[in-house]
């Protein structure tokens, strides 16, 4: 009788202790989930505060001022912002068709046995660190482009009115175009992987019906797969764009680092990330450092918007395929 009562109290104490432990564990996981949330906010706020002196000193014109003069303490973000956008655009122009090609190959054309190995090899392109792309771009790709592709572009497109100015100037190998090429290779695996995955969400019945009425593979892709997965593909492209905008080391190696906006794609330029990588640890003076942090803030805001849009689009297609 007494024993049973003691057992019951013990069991009660035990269950209370367990409940407390459970509450603690649950609380801990929630705490760290909140930490992740706060981290993003903290990055924004820290960069905004760090960039404040520059924003105060130069105001909005910081965005379109071309001067970057550490000696006179005059800083404008235009060349870096321009370079970031142009290199990413080139990367998208080359990388997106390639990535779509890879995705089409993997979902429609590839023998099933080879699907996984080829898919993994393409994904390994994403595993290679940025700095390796940089060193390869500097020593292998840049000389190759300088001797072959750039002279070819100059000869064929250099004399075309309007477009010719894009390919004017000496072929240096190091410049905006080379950076765009490298970025195209780097975003290819990301876009290809997402596109392949969303292609696979197309219900087989749609695909098979199209083949059944005599569509060719190309027609199935164009008329069925792409319209069905449009949102997801755009999401994948935006994800790649987000990566391209913030890519640092590969670009730093090959872009030539010049704070000048040149209409020619063969000319050296700079990007936000390359400017930071090159100048930050040597920046002296509060305004110089602050201008660099301000550039970082601008980069973070741009990539945040692009990545958030990408994520929202991909969520839409996930929801649809879950239904």
């Amino acid at each position: 009788m007494v024993d049973a009562a003691i057992d019951a109290t013990r069991a009660g104490a035990n269950s209370r202790r367990q409940r407390r432990a459970d509450f603690l564990f649950r609380g801990t996981t929630k705490f760290f989930a909140l930490t992740v949330l706060l981290l993003l906010g903290a990055v924004m706020v820290a960069l905004l505060i760090g960039g404040m002196p520059a924003f105060r000193a130069f105001g909005l014109p910081f965005l379109w001022t071309e001067t970057w003069n550490p000696v006179k303490q005059v800083f404008g973000g235009a060349p870096a912002i321009y370079g970031t956008l142009v290199t990413s655009l080139i990367a998208m122009a080359i990388g997106v068709p390639l990535a779509l090609g890879v995705a089409i190959f993997l979902t429609e054309l590839c023998p099933p046995v080879l699907r996984r190995p080829i898919g993994i090899l393409i994904e390994l392109l994403a595993a290679i660190p940025s700095i390796i792309y940089g060193i390869w771009g500097l020593f292998v790709l840049a000389p190759f482009l300088q001797l072959t592709v750039e002279p070819f572009l100059k000869e064929t497109l250099g004399s075309v009115p309007l477009a010719g100015v894009l390919f004017s100037g000496p072929p240096l190998g190091l410049g905006v175009l080379t950076a765009g090429f490298i970025l195209a290779v780097m975003v290819l695996p990301f876009i290809a992987a997402v596109t392949r995955d969303v292609f696979q969400t197309v219900p087989s019945i749609l695909r098979e019906s199209a083949y059944g009425i005599g569509c060719t593979t190309a027609e199935v892709v164009r008329e069925i797969v792409l319209p069905y997965t449009r949102v997801g593909v755009v999401g994948g492209v935006m994800l790649g764009l987000g990566r391209a905008l913030g890519e640092t080391m590969a670009v730093t190696f090959v872009i030539g680092n010049s704070h000048r906006i040149s209409p020619s794609l063969l000319a050296p330029g700079t990007t936000i990330s390359a400017t930071l990588a090159n100048e930050f640890s040597e920046a002296v003076g509060g305004l110089y450092t602050s201008s660099l942090i301000a550039l970082g803030f601008i980069l973070f805001v741009i990539t945040f918007i692009v990545l958030a849009a990408a994520k929202l689009m991909l969520m839409r297609i996930e929801q649809r395929s879950a239904q």
């Binding site: 992740v36 993003l40 960069l47 913030g246 930071l276 970082g296 990539t303 990545l307 994520k311």
Partner: peptide
């Protein structure tokens, strides 16, 4: 937010 951090530019994290 986590998915955004996953693709956020690493140089910005360095700045932070």
């Amino acid at each position: 937010v986590n998915d955004i951090l996953l693709s956020a530019p690493s140089i910005v994290i360095g700045l932070f």
